[in-house]
């Protein structure tokens, strides 16, 4: 409890990051489950048309269509705008392929995403998978170290003060700066890339877990004391569930950054991976493939984020 203030420095930056995420439209999908009181009047409204008192069938269809249009049209317009600007740029600049040209190339590319012609010529599917694998391994190690470390920092004020300057110093460093150290220690490119993922994933994991531990409401800890719960029950029934949402935020931030970093790391290390693939296509001047890669990277990143948001939604509890 007493640790709250000491960690504020580092912790508050993390809060700012979390809050910024909340502004993104994506976040609207994690709106909390409606409470009992919210559901009740709504369902009453829904019942009334069935009783024949509400608007007619045709009216409802029009209403439904309007609602659908409201949700579908703006995103479609945004994508159309992007394609339009892209097409315009492609027309003005011959070296950049337009949407149609890229589409044709994509059709060819995705006809066989999992081919293998030696170590440096593999399908895009393999490249994406090996990038994901690196992220998974680096991230897994980061979770293994970062989550227990976060618990320690959150629980013990001394540890918190001890590591605060270290974390403050290391956190702003680009993970790529650690790549040479990784190469030196592991002597191979592949674990060195994983190592950068480990470094960039561990900070949000430590900080968010620590913050979660510090923010466990005193009430819950008082309940534990009054009930006289044993230490293992305090951890499994109270601390862990209370910290879980914070941990999941840390995991989501980590995965997001890891996915950003892996592309750059692979450009430097080579091997199989989407980052290396982008660089390889650049060397053979297949610009349409680079554009395809940009879309693929974007979609994979989006999918990762959505998966973790769903997971977070599952484990977020209303406290009131």
């Amino acid at each position: 409890m007493s640790a709250v203030i000491a960690f504020k420095n580092v912790g508050s930056m993390q809060v700012a990051e979390v809050d910024a995420m909340a502004i993104l439209p994506i976040q609207t999908t994690v709106s909390p489950a409606p409470t009992f009181m919210e559901i009740a009047p709504f369902s009453a409204q829904e019942v009334s048309p069935a009783l024949g008192r509400g608007p007619g069938r045709g009216e409802r269809l029009v209403h439904g269509a309007r609602e659908l249009a409201k949700t579908v049209i703006p995103p479609l317009l945004g994508i159309a705008l992007l394609l339009g600007i892209w097409a315009l740029v492609a027309v003005k600049n011959n070296s950049i392929p337009g949407p149609m040209q890229t589409w044709d190339a994509a059709a060819k590319l995705f006809a066989d995403p999992f081919y293998r012609n030696g170590p440096n010529d593999q399908g895009i599917g393999w490249n994406v998978l090996s990038s994901l694998q690196r992220v998974g391994i680096g991230f897994g190690f980061a979770a293994l170290v970062g989550i227990p470390a976060g618990f320690m920092l959150g629980r013990f004020n001394f540890m918190n003060r001890m590591f605060e300057p270290v974390i403050s110093l290391l956190r702003p460093v680009s993970p790529l700066a650690w790549l040479p150290i990784g190469l030196l220690v592991f002597k191979r490119a592949d674990p060195a890339a994983t190592w950068t993922i480990f470094i960039c994933s561990i900070w949000p994991m430590i900080l968010n877990t620590a913050q979660g531990v510090q923010r466990v409401p005193q009430d819950y800890l008082n309940v534990a004391r009054v009930l006289g719960l044993s230490e293992d029950k305090v951890i499994t029934r109270i601390l862990f569930p209370a910290v879980l949402p914070y941990m999941l935020t840390g995991i989501r931030l980590s995965i997001g950054t890891a996915w950003l970093v892996i592309v750059a790391a692979e450009m430097l290390t080579g091997g199989v991976g989407i980052g290396f693939w982008v660089w390889d296509e650049w060397n053979s001047l297949k610009v349409e493939h680079i554009i395809i890669a940009i879309f693929v990277i974007g979609m994979v990143g989006f999918a990762l984020e959505q998966m973790l948001l769903l997971l977070a939604k599952r484990f977020t509890y209303e406290s009131r």
Partner: peptide, 20 residues
């Protein structure tokens, strides 16, 4: 000397654990 089950407490804000 400390809390005990023979002295139960009802807290002002109920303090139910939201995950149970």
């Amino acid at each position: 000397t400390g809390p005990g089950p023979e002295r139960a407490v009802v807290f002002q804000n109920h303090s139910l654990l939201p995950w149970m």
